[in-house]
Design a protein around this nucleic acid. Structure first.
Lengths: 226, 226
DNA sequence: TCAAAAGTGTTAAGCCTACACCCATGA
DNA sequence: TCATGGGTGTAGGCTTAACACTTTTGA
């Protein structure tokens, strides 16, 4: 082994997942109540250690699937957190990922097994270690990303109304939007297909359902901007 | 120790630095020729292993100072690279950082000791491991960041001409800009101080020198956009 | 018939883009 | 006197933001 590699400290590497969902009103966060030490009983992000054969993307996917039951979740790396004292048990560096899931698809039984619960961003409990900072950075990254790529659709059911989409973007950006300007902009992007179906649950008149059209998006990818 | 922490694989954690400089014409990259195995004689990014008492920001700063002699370099985390086979010697996960330095400030002697050389982005040699991918991601991140925050100034000497600043932004964005529109925009931002001094090296008439004014920037931070 | 949400257009302001000429000076 | 780079303004198109009324229908 080359001398540079000898006598170097070996450490634990973990991944932690900031799991976002959307319930037609608010952005939510899936958190787990720890049933193990350290910090048993406190709330934290779902995480896990990197295994020998994995890269961190794979580790995050594994962790996400264990908690939600969903494969192929949309995911993006937030950053790496490495304060020497961030984990009191042993030096552990953690790579944070945020994930966007369609709240309807997630397996509630699995979540119950992990004592997981959804929290609104505004009333999430304090989190262990540096998980609060991870969440802050994830929200910033999500905001940036959502304004340049149509990732918002990952958080919605397959069919959704224009108003649901608008509420989602309002939740991500943390500000209200004008509904006329919003639908004008979305229509200009030409990435949605308007269905003949209406959603009758939210009003007497009903509102048209749309689906996201990946083919159309590929064509107009460059002009996406909200 | 909690059972979750036992029997987990411990790995090496490294940082690698994508060091950008600017020589009035082009964006450049500072690379080192490895004088150690593996891949002795090939070109790579400057890197190092994380030490016990450091976080990765500190490690990157230490590595940068060792090569350039400069303290407090502007730095930003690019991402973490963790393919199980990225380093053939031993499993090593690496956190990539890009750094912006004023090419005039860097200590050439130190660079010579490390067999370091500046390369234009367009004719940089192939790099070891996944360092090429790190550079690609760093350029993307730099482009994004430079369009929303005035980090370009980190790459210039303290006093610079409007044309140097424009050439820098052209180099970062990879496209030519109109000089009238550019100076209009910069002036609107109101973050520069125009000096009475002129730079006489680039033309007979001379061109005014400017400095970046951090106080003004703090005031108008929110409207920065190029 | 009324309450509640859906749907739809226009105008003004600001921003971005394209574009060309004169100036100062050293050689 | 000429060649070189420096400096400056305007007009048109486009994008964004602000704004209000009618429709549908179940209760």
């Amino acid at each position: 082994m080359p001398p540079q590699y000898q006598d170097q400290t070996h450490i634990l590497l973990a991944v932690d997942c900031i799991i976002f969902g959307f319930d037609n009103e608010e952005l939510k966060l899936l958190l787990i109540k720890r049933d193990f030490e350290p910090e048993r009983g406190k709330w934290s992000l779902m995480g896990g250690f990197l295994q020998d054969s994995e890269n961190t993307d794979m580790a995050a996917n594994r962790v996400l699937q264990r908690l939600t039951g969903i494969h192929n979740i949309y995911m993006d790396q937030v950053g790496t957190f490495s304060d020497p004292r961030r984990d009191p048990v042993e030096r552990t560096v953690s790579v944070a990922y945020y994930a966007l899931i369609n709240i309807e698809q997630h397996n509630e039984e699995l979540s119950r097994e992990h004592s997981a619960e959804w929290f609104s961003l505004s009333d999430a409990p304090p989190l262990i270690f540096d998980h609060g900072e991870m969440v802050r950075q994830a929200i910033n990254k999500l905001r940036q990303k959502a304004s340049s790529q149509p990732i918002g659709f990952e958080l919605l059911p397959e069919k959704f109304t224009m108003r649901q989409l608008q509420k989602l973007y309002e939740a991500i950006q943390g500000q209200e939007l004008d509904k006329r300007n919003f639908s004008k902009k979305i229509n200009q992007l030409d990435v949605l297909t308007k269905l003949d179906e209406k959603d009758m649950t939210s009003s007497k008149r009903g509102s048209y359902l749309f689906t996201f059209d990946k083919d159309k998006y590929e064509i107009s990818r460059n002009k996406f901007s909200i």
